[in-house]
Write a protein that binds this DNA or RNA. Sequence first.
DNA 1: TTCGCAGATGTAACCGGTGACATGATCGTC
DNA 2: GACGATCATGTCACCGGTTACATCTGCGAA
Lengths: 333, 333
Amino acid sequence: MAGIRDVARLAGVSTATVTRALRDEPSVTAETKAKVLAAAARLDYVPSAAARALSQGRSNVLGLFVPDVVNPFYALVAQGMADRAADARYQLVIAGSHLNPERERQMVTSLHDGTFAGLAATTVGTDESFTSALTAQRGPLVLVDRRPRGLHAPLVRTDNRKVTRDAVGQFFRLGHRKVSMISGPRDFDTACQRLSGFRLAYRDAGLAVREDYISHGHLGEEGGYRAMNELLAMPEPPTAVFCFNNLVTVGALKAIRAAGLKIPTDLSLLAFDDMSLFPLVEPPITAIAQPAYEMGRAAADLLLRRIAGETDLADIVLPATLVTRESLGPPLS
Amino acid sequence: MAGIRDVARLAGVSTATVTRALRDEPSVTAETKAKVLAAAARLDYVPSAAARALSQGRSNVLGLFVPDVVNPFYALVAQGMADRAADARYQLVIAGSHLNPERERQMVTSLHDGTFAGLAATTVGTDESFTSALTAQRGPLVLVDRRPRGLHAPLVRTDNRKVTRDAVGQFFRLGHRKVSMISGPRDFDTACQRLSGFRLAYRDAGLAVREDYISHGHLGEEGGYRAMNELLAMPEPPTAVFCFNNLVTVGALKAIRAAGLKIPTDLSLLAFDDMSLFPLVEPPITAIAQPAYEMGRAAADLLLRRIAGETDLADIVLPATLVTRESLGPPLS
DNA sequence: TTCGCAGATGTAACCGGTGACATGATCGTC
DNA sequence: GACGATCATGTCACCGGTTACATCTGCGAA
């Protein structure tokens, strides 16, 4: 592997001049630049990333910590971040903890060993240790989607409350009165915001919230499945259900299918988070779509600005939109 | 940030001893080790990744190049690779080219600048330049899913031909005669292998292949959509269709739905690649499931072995399985 | 007693760019 | 014609671990 000294020798200049020529600094003569570029090209010279990182004291790698890489929402966030990062010639390392404590420890280590110039994270509130490690993180940090209690860092999110309020309002406008929500853990701020929007929709309709129709603490497919089964087993089951995230929706759908119920005839369903196959489900699922890709881009952007020295960065709130398909209908009774 | 010299000073030893103690080498006294570990702990010492990479001449980062990070198949491969890599204390950088030439150039650069200790790649045959850059790649390289023409590197794949032959055989056993395939580009070895399995299934049934039922050169959702529309517009349309990958299947499904046809009554459908929402599509889609996660693990494993110095690594062929759901039925006519 | 060897630890060059500072050349000005 | 400013380029310490080699100690064998 040719090094900068080889290039310098071949071009007949010093290593400093090579550095400067390659960075296209104005202080270098056009003639010298040409010589250096020719030499570099002839030797297939590519500067060592490690050497550069060491001498500059900063890497060109951003980190993204998410609970689950396979969840399409996070995959899109990652894509957006990676794209924006690449624009600025940064790499992106995507790490999925998925509840492996050993993995988490490693992640925290690489957080300190200079691997990352900055970090974006979405944590599930349950892993206390990780959150506190993040708190101790001195380097640039931004949060995506949700903010764990006590973590001060800029956040990229959607206006959960407003969009939920509007979308759930649809249920009431269609005549539903028994409207339910499968919500997440109480300490998730996203769950809280969506729940708050849900309550507002009840209020907008001039109705008192049926607390027994709110099922708390669910995450993932199994959570949605269990919650939906419990709702269906109620003496007076709801006629409309709002699911607070994509995996919960999938679980709920499976429960509904298992119970032999038809959407939207027997039950109306509204999902938070869209999925690429929702149009193909029977019936196509109406969903609140978060701009996941843009959220990723915005997170990278925020992070790069922090790395560049900006401080006092404000949260970014992006709009989510309701994608109307066919899972909402008037109540049966 | 505390450095190794700080630790050495505090422990009253030399930097070399610190290195050795931290790597738990047997030549270091238990007593000395204890001193060093105590000092390191007190200073919150974490070795610099960049310095280590520079002095060892090798990073602890693996690279994965895929066409599209959001495609759940690749996401699962990435997950598997990341998990296996983490076991060996390696990071994984996932890069999605998705047809951006500038991005590709960057990827090729980081391929040479030592960012990656090794590389796993799945390329779409169209990007000639990238493939040739990969060929020039001197470092450890493994391929996932498909091997571009002329690239010599160990490959992790599934037995496309066999599983396709068996699965497509189902069509004939159900009585279908007009069996179609939406296939990929002719220069994809995966497409060739699946096509070959498809032909074998025809032969097993004692029938001559209807070449006009084979639609070549499709990739992605639009490809599947277009191909399916063309098939449906034939004077004598097929009664069963095999889609050669997941996105093509999604496109085909949309075309079928748009045409107002019912599966499996009007048309039977078989997909290569399973998707998490296929069970919820109407009807649930029968699919050939590739062990994507395991493929990722295997790829990382292979790569780590190459990095460790092993040569002459053989291809790894993992079994794919048919997941029977409800999209196959007897032909209408 | 001395030599040799093994085991424990220290020393310092090295990895390959970077950038502060030094140097040398050129040019305008008084 | 000398001096200072400016510009182009060179020199070299430095980033922080790693590792080959040197050193020192202690113990057993000759």
